[in-house]
Nucleic acid binder design. Structure first.
Lengths: 245, 245
DNA sequence: TTTGCCATGTTATCAGACAAGATACATTTC
DNA sequence: GAAATGTATCTTGTCTGATAACATGGCAAA
């Protein structure tokens, strides 16, 4: 991990005690010297072994928790996570400066959501259909209130993912959501209220097409509707971003 | 005298104060409410604003540091990182113990690769087609040598992703590969060499169907071929795993 | 044996203090 | 006047001691 970019340290880079402890314990865990699910030494033991205060120990453990290497249970102890070496899939926000990059991520979203809609049309039950319908109504209400309904829109898509019964779909869509939602505020940037209303009505019509295909248990139609919706969404992003420039 | 965490909700939420603060600050940063290189409130201000102790504030900041969202400079303050990285998408290996879980991840892979094949059929050029063809030949060679050709198979799929020009496709497929490849060794577990050869010939026939559709610039056929291949793959995994039990 | 209580150990959180580095501003020096 | 310097003050880093919440195992009672 890089230190402060403005700081040139000629020979020695002084790591804080916390950072040293994180480094030490992290390598121990990655090297398998502590095995998955094994309990780490108690805070008191770590304090004594490394001659540091409890603050340092706790901050180090907090860092390791954030890295996903350990989990703690209050009153029980700190334990090595089951999979300490899983390399995650990252999308770096700063890479999404160009329109093209955002469109690429939107295409990844399209890929997943098309399949999600198709599978939802197979797996869906009345309960999930009710959830989707409720989301659609919430979008309607938000639009009537003059809101951009970004959150309700998001929830509708998630409700479809839940209907598949495959938890990875919802998790991945939530992941993409955190990446994309900050970019989606352009939707709220449409100045003319009537234009925005027309825009939202169009989006909602596409939503209903997806919903109806799922309700009709027609996976092919559901995939087609989802594809239409998300390709239109990419196109809208393309044109709006271009105008914004 | 503990502050009542049930003040707002009858059911105590299992999130620790530290975790809540991490969540709050993390979303603030990711949402851009704190901009890169901007200074965060001081520890004292955060203590006052969230009504928590300095321990909680410091552990929360330690977590955010581990996530790469903030950097701290002693005596100066805590700052939003220049490249605040989003929360990554993780698939924990240990969650893939059950057949169902693996099938769920395979479905995620299917979703992406179907779209990848379709987009490759649109974007492909001669250079990329040559890459794919070369991969197919390598699989053939490996199979003739009696090898399971897992690596060459992987490379073929990646070559399709490269043809789309969308780097996120290849990155995501590589990510899923690291998760799934350890599970794929069942392929090598087929004991009868003739059965394995028949299996691999079938797989290779499906590969060629995908390749030809892409070569013919037919996205619909490419998606159908990719879907057929990956659904067959899921089915093969299902049956083989069941036999293994 | 089973159930429930309780002592003990552990993490979570709070509070206060001092050390070390950073920053702005006044002071000194040229 | 400008640059160098000293200093007050702010902020993070670390230490210490205490209380609350939770987990666990043992023991007593049913």
């Amino acid at each position: 991990m890089a230190r402060s970019p403005t700081e040139f340290s000629p020979v020695t880079l002084p790591l804080s005690r916390t950072a040293q402890l994180v480094e030490h314990l992290g390598t121990d865990i990655r090297a398998g010297r502590y095995k998955p699910t094994e309990r780490l030494p108690t805070e008191q033991e770590l304090m004594a072994r490394f001659d540091v205060s409890r603050t340092v120990v706790r901050e180090a453990v907090a860092s390791l928790k954030a890295e996903g290497l350990v989990v703690t249970r209050q009153g029980s102890g700190a334990f090595v996570a089951q999979n300490p070496t899983g390399k995650p899939f990252r999308i770096v926000q700063d890479d999404l400066t160009s329109i093209t990059e955002v469109l690429n991520v939107l295409q990844l979203r399209l890929a997943v959501e098309v399949e999600v809609a198709g599978d939802a049309a197979i797996k869906r039950d009345q309960l999930r259909l009710d959830d989707m319908a409720r989301c659609l109504e919430q979008i309607d209400a938000a639009v009537r209130a003059g809101d951009a309904a970004i959150e309700a829109d998001y929830e509708f898509h998630l409700s479809i993912a839940r209907a598949t019964g495959n938890p990875y779909f919802e998790r991945f869509m939530r992941f993409l959501g955190t990446v994309l939602i900050p970019r989606q505020t352009v939707r709220a940037g449409i100045e003319d209220p009537r234009a925005q209303r027309a825009y939202l009505d169009q989006v909602q019509a596409e939503h209903r097409a997806i919903y109806q295909a799922i309700r009709d248990a027609d996976p092919i139609a559901a995939r087609a509707a989802a594809r239409a919706h998300l390709e239109a969404g990419r196109e809208r992003y393309r044109t709006i971003s271009r105008e914004a420039v």
